[in-house]
Amino acid sequence: MNKAVLRYSDDTQIMAEALTCRRGGRTVFANMSFTLSAGSYLCLRGRNGAGKSTLLRLIAGLVPQSDGKFVVQAGGQALDIKSSLLMVGHLNGLKPALTLRDNAAMFQKVMTGQNLDQAVLQAAAKRFALAHLLDQPVQYFSSGQRHRSALMRFELVSRQIWLMDEPTVGLDSDNRQALAVMMQSHLERGGIIISATHDPIDVEGIELNLDDFAPKQIGQNSLESEWL
């Protein structure tokens, strides 16, 4: 097996301790703890509304935690989450009027300030069978093609932590395999992946069921009990 030429730092860690998130007066999850180190894959499971997307947005720093501790660090130093993370959610973030190539170039330029390497784009598009669509405006794409275009981004910019919200939705078996291969090679380079998904992906990882952290009853929440 080939050793990765470029590796991410090995001592990167994501740590959650007794993490609790409340939104709109409702406790989404409570007392969640996990630790992830470089090269590990965390697969979030749970029923709809268990807070999978919320947890991803919390990890990205968009949603504040209500209680507990959450740190991303490398070698004991807090890591700048913005330059080490990439998130692809339900929405694909594509501009319909632009071609896929222009969308990718714009994304690359805004995310890194650097110009897009066309060879990298070719390789990424090939992986998800989009190479022939690069110069078509995205407005003509099917929803599956758009979704693959969004997934392609993980290969465009190099970020250690990948956050994926339902990455397998609308993918056929070939593309699901391509996704698994991409994730596998990211993990081998020391990357960290956290994904929320219903469907199984052919990648070894840790499972975290968010139903286990659902509040036992609403009264558990101190603020809410004050209202009663």
Binding site: G25, Q217, I218, G219, W227, L228
Partner: peptide, 17 residues
């Protein structure tokens, strides 16, 4: 307003239960 909040928490409890 406080009573309305209480009401909405009770509703949430009922829905969750």
């Amino acid at each position: 307003e406080i009573n309305l909040r209480k009401l909405s928490v009770m509703r949430m409890n009922e829905v969750a239960g």
